[in-house]
């Protein structure tokens, strides 16, 4: 049985490995729920219409725009933010490469970039520079000029390939 229409409802989901249950307004999008209700401010909010990529998080393993999904839609889902990926060490090498290549300045875009790139690295073993650029084309960075970010991804790829052989 599904509940009838309502302007707010209780959702239960897993966020960074922890089960949480909260009442949320139907109009609240996922990124506001993560930031304001759960205090997970690693994920940023920019344009709120899908263009900048700052709000990108993982839902059931896939990168999605946190500003274009309602929190009520995440009921039952497994959500992961940059805090979760960091805590379980899943992107430690990528983060180290970002630091080494100066792939962030103000850092506003970085959490969204990391989530987006983490998915690329899982889907493709050896993406070209062009494919990396394509993958981050939906993540705006107003500081770095992107070259350093692409460099950091290549550095991570090279290190991972080296480790695999």
């Amino acid at each position: 049985m599904s509940a009838g229409p309502d302007n707010a409802r209780v959702v239960t989901l897993t966020v960074n490995g922890e089960r949480v249950s909260r009442r949320v307004a139907a109009r609240a999008h996922l990124v506001d729920f993560l930031r304001d209700t759960l205090d997970l401010t690693g994920t940023h909010v920019g344009c709120e219409h899908g263009v900048c990529g700052a709000c990108t998080v993982r839902v059931d393993g896939m990168a999605v725009r946190g500003c274009l999904m309602l929190a009520v839609q995440a009921d039952g889902a497994v959500v992961e933010t940059v805090e979760g990926l960091t805590d379980r060490g899943a992107i430690a090498d990528l983060q180290e490469a970002f630091l080494a290549r100066n792939a962030l300045q103000c850092g506003f875009c970085t959490p969204g970039m990391l989530i987006t790139i983490a998915e690329l690295l899982e889907r493709e073993a050896a993406p070209s520079r062009a494919a990396i650029r394509e993958a981050i084309s939906g993540n705006y960075c107003r500081c770095t000029g992107y070259q350093a970010i692409v460099d950091a991804v290549e550095r991570t790829l090279a290190a991972r390939a080296g480790r695999a052989t």
Partner: peptide
């Protein structure tokens, strides 16, 4: 932010 609305999730 979105305006207020009701939400239903039929199955």
């Amino acid at each position: 932010k979105a305006p207020d609305f009701a939400y239903a999730r039929p199955t």
